[in-house]
Each structure stands twice: as structure tokens, then as C-alpha cells.
């Protein structure tokens, strides 16, 4: 994860590097997002192509133990996000099925009002097999040329 945490007490920030070959960018974003309500988070790349994560407190100065605690927590969150990213890919189908079941179950069947209020105009209705056409329309005699 990070080789070391550099703390700068004068501007109250902690910085550490993350090797992007170990952690997908989405995991890094996921961890960063969890922290942006309590810290200022800044990402940049160093000469080795590693991502340097800087964390600074939003309220008042932070002491060294606090900064190091944040860096540690960020590392844990990063690992958690990276693993979740992998699991979500592996179990995508099962997760989607259960989520659909739960949400559709909670919503219940569509009511007549739902159907009458449904906006079909925004979605072009493709009908390559002519299912929506009336029988007469579909099989009517073609005008002779």
C-alpha cells in the first residue's frame, strides 16, 4: 500500500503513495470519496507513476497521530474497496438478480395508473417482427405496382 506516511504539521496534511498496479482506480476513488466529508483529499502522480494521496483536515489543525490514523483508515478503506470491486465483478449476476427481486417485490406490480402514465414516446418502439401490428395490417394485400 503506502510505503510511508509523510506528515506535514505546518499545513496539517498527510501524504502517502498508492501503487495503481495493486489497486484499481475505482477502488482509489471509492476510498477517496468516503473521506471527502471529513478531509480535503488531493490526488496526484509522482515520477514512478504511483498515486500520491494527500489528506488535510477540514476543521482546525490535526496532530500527527490523527493524520497517521487517517492514512491508516484510508488504507483499510482502499483495500476494502479493491476487494469489493473484485467481488462485484465475480458475483455480478447474483447481486443483480437479488437486487431486482427485492426492489420489484417492494414496488409491487404496476398499477393501471402506472401503465397509463408510462411515457412510451421517449423510447422508440422497435417491432421488427411486427408483433404490434394488427393482423390485417401485417398480411394485407400489397397494392399491385
Amino acid at each position: 500500500m503506502h510505503h510511508s506516511v509523510t506528515t506535514n504539521l505546518s499545513n496539517g496534511s498527510a501524504a502517502f503513495t498508492v501503487d495503481p498496479s495493486l489497486y484499481p482506480l475505482d477502488a482509489l476513488y471509492g476510498a477517496a470519496y468516503v473521506f471527502i466529508d471529513r478531509c480535503f483529499v488531493f490526488l496526484e502522480k509522482n515520477a514512478q507513476g504511483h498515486v500520491v494521496v494527500s489528506l488535510a483536515p477540514k476543521k482546525g489543525p490535526a496532530d500527527q497521530p490523527t493524520l497517521e490514523k487517517w492514512a491508516g483508515e484510508f488504507s483499510n478503506e482502499l483495500l476494502s474497496c479493491a476487494w469489493r470491486h473484485q467481488i462485484a465483478a465475480n458475483n455480478k449476476q447474483a447481486l443483480e438478480q437479488v437486487t431486482s427481486l427485492a426492489l420489484a417485490g417492494a414496488m409491487g406490480p404496476p398499477s393501471l395508473d402506472d401503465l397509463s402514465n408510462f411515457d412510451f414516446s421517449s423510447q422508440p418502439l422497435e417491432d421488427p417482427l411486427g408483433i404490434a401490428m394488427s393482423w390485417e395490417e401485417k398480411y394485407k394485400k400489397k397494392p399491385k405496382p
Partner: peptide
């Protein structure tokens, strides 16, 4: 810092 957070 606020700007950076917002952009992120």
C-alpha cells in the same frame, strides 16, 4: 482545498 475536493 475545497476546489480540489469538489473536483474529485
Amino acid at each position: 482545498r475545497e476546489l480540489s475536493n469538489y473536483a474529485l
